[in-house]
Simulated scan of single mutants.
Amino acid sequence: MSRTPATPTARQRLLSAASELFYESGIAATGVDAVLGRAGVSPATMYAHFAGKDGLVAAYLEERHRRWREVWDEVLAEEGDHRERLLSVFEALARYRRRTGDRRGCGFQAAATELPADHPGQVWLTADTILLSGRLLELARAAGADRPDELAADLLLLYDGALAGLARRATTPGALDEDPVGRARATARTVVDARLAGR
């Protein structure tokens, strides 16, 4: 017997609507009324779950961080080879985008340009940076790279470049690079091979 899917709660509907609108249109450009309209809830319901728009933005970034980490964890669990584990961030990015349907750049990079330093969402922007830099360094060390900090920094730069390429492609029809993630992964493989060959 098949189960009937559970009806999303008001909080889930709010978070889903906010996630779609903040990513599609930007945080500053998205008013609370647009989120309420898409979610089909009242202002009182929103304030019962979130401390206004700032709280909703922070929850959106927290949820995005959770989903991204889960995808990357999943990719790492499938891979035992040290070289492939170092490149896992690019496969995770491609897989995350397929699952979420993201067609623009990075939600974290976009939020970083919009949020003031004291915004409650900043904690999740920091968490994303710590996850990326810390995990890449850990993987570089595990692979036996002679300068793991430099290798991790190179990979992070290529990852950030791939995300910038995705944003450029989304806003510029006919942009030069049709597959910035694939190009970044191929370049990263060359860097990893060179670094590990010299260890």
Rank of each mutant, 00 (worst) to 15 (best):
R3G: 12
R3P: 03
T4R: 15
T4F: 12
P5W: 09
P8V: 05
A10F: 08
Q12A: 15
R13W: 09
L14F: 13
L15T: 14
S16G: 14
S19E: 13
F22W: 12
Y23M: 05
E24P: 10
G26V: 10
I27E: 10
I27T: 11
G31M: 07
D33V: 13
A34T: 09
V35T: 05
L36T: 09
L36H: 11
G37Y: 07
A39V: 08
A39N: 08
G40Y: 10
S42G: 08
A44R: 11
A44W: 10
M46G: 04
M46K: 04
Y47C: 06
K53S: 02
D54A: 14
L56G: 01
L61S: 03
E62K: 06
E62V: 01
E63G: 04
E63I: 01
R64M: 04
R64C: 02
H65D: 06
R66Y: 04
R66L: 08
W68I: 03
W68G: 01
E70K: 07
V71T: 13
D73F: 03
D73E: 10
E78T: 06
G80F: 02
G80N: 05
D81Q: 06
D81C: 04
D81A: 11
H82A: 15
R83C: 03
R83T: 09
R85N: 01
L86Y: 04
S88D: 02
V89M: 00
F90W: 03
F90Y: 05
L93I: 00
A94E: 10
Y96K: 02
G101T: 10
G101I: 08
D102K: 02
D102V: 07
R103S: 11
G105T: 08
G107T: 10
Q109M: 12
A111N: 10
A111R: 06
E114M: 12
L115S: 04
P116I: 13
A117R: 15
A117C: 06
D118K: 13
D118P: 03
G121M: 03
G121F: 04
Q122D: 02
V123D: 05
L125W: 11
I130S: 07
I130K: 11
G134W: 09
L136R: 10
L137R: 05
L137G: 00
L139P: 03
A140M: 00
A142D: 09
A145E: 02
A145R: 04
D146F: 10
P148E: 05
P148M: 08
D149K: 08
A152K: 00
D154H: 12
L155V: 01
L156A: 14
L156S: 04
L157P: 02
D160R: 12
L163W: 04
L163V: 08
A164Y: 11
L166W: 09
L166A: 05
A167S: 13
R169P: 09
A170Y: 11
A170K: 09
T172R: 06
P173M: 06
P173I: 09
G174R: 04
A175E: 13
L176M: 15
L176S: 12
P180C: 03
P180N: 04
V181P: 14
V181I: 15
G182N: 05
A184F: 15
R185F: 00
A186N: 11
A188E: 01
A188W: 07
R189C: 00
T190Q: 11
V191Q: 00
V191A: 00
V192N: 00
V192Q: 00
R195K: 14
L196I: 09
R199F: 02
R199Q: 13
R199I: 00
